[in-house]
């Protein structure tokens, strides 16, 4: 039997969920025996295989058009999509921006900060993606497994991946369901 392929990526997050993934320490060796780790933000391969993967993992919320693209591509190329962490599941910290709105938040960040002089301006390069209303991943594409947490514990991540690798849908409950 071939090992299931797993790919991950991050959207508007802090990378903490991926750090928590690494926090499983030597169990990562055990995990690589169960799964074929393909693209991740911390490995050389950056995009999920065009031929598709079995499990896609997304960290972070959707805050701009680029995040939307990445999420859609991951959804298209994976069979089971995992929303990893509070930002991917709920919108998380980036979603605080929704209360004042993106424009206010950018103005505060790029123009009004105490350390900014008169030349402060909101970046407007046409190559930059456009900010959108911050949403959880499930507002853009269908999510199959929600693993909340800020960050989810290494134990929870290991449990979810080990279950998926063995063809079972994980039941995120008890200590693994921790919204913080």
């Amino acid at each position: 039997m071939t090992k299931p392929k797993v790919a991950s990526d991050w959207l508007a997050g802090c990378a903490g969920c991926h750090m928590s993934f690494l926090d499983m320490d030597e169990r990562i060796i055990e995990l690589t025996k169960l799964v074929d780790l393909r693209s991740t933000p911390i490995t050389d391969l950056k995009e999920p295989d065009e031929s598709g993967v079995d499990v896609g993992i997304l960290e972070g919320g959707i805050t701009n058009t680029y995040n939307e693209e990445v999420a859609i591509k991951m959804r298209e190329r994976c069979k089971i999509l995992v929303a990893l962490g509070d930002c991917a599941v709920f919108g998380g910290v980036p979603a605080m921006r929704n209360f004042p709105g993106a424009e206010e938040a950018l103005k505060r960040a790029y123009i009004e900060t105490e350390s900014t002089d008169e030349s402060g301006m909101i970046p407007n390069d046409p190559e930059l993606s456009t900010p959108v209303h911050v949403r959880p991943v499930s507002d853009v594409v269908k999510v199959d497994v929600f693993l909340p947490g800020c960050a989810p514990s290494a134990d929870a991540i290991f449990y979810v991946l080990a279950e998926l690798a063995q063809g079972r849908m994980p039941n995120v409950d008890g200590e693994f369901n921790d919204w913080h």
Binding site: V89, F90, N177
Partner: peptide, 24 residues
């Protein structure tokens, strides 16, 4: 949003109710 609330994990009745219902 629980992540930036002071009342979490045993403090918040709302969060506990969601856990009890198995909401993820």
């Amino acid at each position: 949003f629980c992540m930036y609330c002071q009342d979490t994990d045993g403090d918040c009745v709302l969060q506990q109710a969601a856990y009890d219902e198995g909401m993820t």
